[in-house]
Each structure stands twice: as structure tokens, then as C-alpha cells.
């Protein structure tokens, strides 16, 4: 827990300064999670603000301060789902935006080594997003929270409100589907390399 329970209590009682402090503490972490969940840097802040807006208006429903973090993650996951659903209605796909932005940032840097490093990272990001784009939103979000964000099973139980066994089954199935997609992508890349 990054904050004291009393801060949550104060925010629950309508103390805006306490709420401000909570946002400042969790902002970076939540924005990071959102950026890895939705993959569109230009919309990360917007979704992040939606998460904290929902937090502000639902804080009084939080019964135990101990479950604050899983609860915040739950709000984050729901906001990410809502965003993805809205994006589905838009026809264009902009998975490569982050790499373009990163490349521009890298171009601004003088060092060639740094540029090469940025390029490598951008390629990696694009590759993983392409891989996770081959499975459902549910699988993508669950695996990102577990494998990338590093949430424990206990934390995921609280986020998804399911028991450990059900969660393990969901995680196993999601991982199998990603592995299948990963295998296809690896084989395709190997064939490409052979043909070149």
C-alpha cells in the first residue's frame, strides 16, 4: 500500500486535498498500467482521468481501506474495457503510434546508440501488442495484469472477485491462447528469415 489508511478515510469524508494526494501517489502507476493495457499513448491521460473521476464518485462505497488498491485496479480495468469497446467502433488501428512517438523522441536525441536502443524497445512494444492483439480483450487484460504488471493471485482475486481456482483456470486458458498465437508469430518470423 503506497498510502496511509487515514488518507483514504479523509478522502472518503470529502477532503479534496486528501483525494489530490491519493491521485498524485497513484497517478504514475495507474497511467503506466493503462498505457500497457490500451497501447495508445495519446489516450492514456484521458482514460487515467476517467479512472480517478470514477474513484472520486465511488470512494464512499469503499468499505474497507485495505482493499483500496485492488479496487483501484478494478476501476482501471473497467475504464480500459470501456475505452477498448469505444475503440472497436472506430475502424482504424493505431497500434504503431507509440513506436512512432518514441522514434521521434529518439530522433531528437543525438546519440545513435540511444536511438538504436529506442528502436529496439519500440519494436518489442509493437511485437507484444501485436501478440496480445491476437487474443480477446479479457485474455489481454488478465495476462497484462498478471505477467506485465506483476499482480499476485490474491490481488487478481480481489480485482476480478473470483476464487483462486477459477482464476487459475482463466489464467491457464488465456496463457495457452497467447502461446498459440506466439507460436504462429514465431513460425512466421522464422519462415520470413529463411526466405530472406
Amino acid at each position: 500500500m503506497l498510502i496511509d489508511f487515514s488518507l483514504i478515510q479523509r478522502a472518503k469524508e470529502g477532503d479534496d486535498a486528501a483525494f489530490n494526494e491519493i491521485v498524485l501517489v497513484y497517478r504514475k502507476r495507474i497511467l503506466g498500467t493503462i498505457s500497457r493495457l490500451i497501447g495508445r499513448p495519446e489516450d492514456v491521460e484521458d482514460v487515467g482521468q476517467e479512472v480517478f473521476l470514477r474513484l472520486y464518485y465511488s470512494l464512499e462505497q469503499l468499505r474497507a481501506p485495505e482493499v483500496f488498491e485492488p479496487w483501484l485496479y478494478r476501476l482501471t480495468v473497467n475504464a480500459a474495457y470501456d475505452y477498448m469497446r469505444r475503440q472497436k467502433r472506430r475502424p482504424e488501428s493505431r497500434m504503431a503510434d507509440l513506436s512512432e512517438q518514441q522514434l521521434q523522441m529518439a530522433d531528437a536525441d543525438a546519440g545513435g546508440k540511444r536511438r538504436a536502443e529506442e528502436q529496439k524497445k519500440a519494436n518489442l512494444r509493437e511485437y507484444v501488442r501485436s501478440l496480445l492483439g491476437r487474443v480477446s480483450e479479457e485474455d489481454r487484460i488478465l495476462l497484462t495484469l498478471k505477467e506485465v504488471e506483476g499482480l499476485s493471485l490474491k490481488e487478481l482475486e480481489a480485482v476480478y472477485k473470483v476464487n483462486e481456482n477459477a482464476l487459475k483456470v482463466r489464467l491457464f486458458r488465456a496463457r495457452q491462447r497467447v502461446l498459440k498465437a506466439f507460436s504462429v508469430m514465431e513460425n512466421r518470423d522464422a519462415e520470413k528469415e529463411r526466405s530472406e
Binding site: 503506466g32 482521468q49 512494444r125 511485437y127 501478440l131 505477467e147 496463457r175
Partner: peptide, 25 residues
Amino acid sequence: LDILFREYRQACPDPDGSPNFMPQL
């Protein structure tokens, strides 16, 4: 796949948010 996810986490740093984040919120 485990290695790929680990590297991906390192390649995606947490953004700080713009100075307008709090006023807009």
C-alpha cells in the same frame, strides 16, 4: 514468453502525466 513479457515491462516505463493532468481532472 516469460522473457518477452519481462522485457516488454522494461520497455514500457510508467508515464508521468502532463502538468494539465490534475487541473483537467
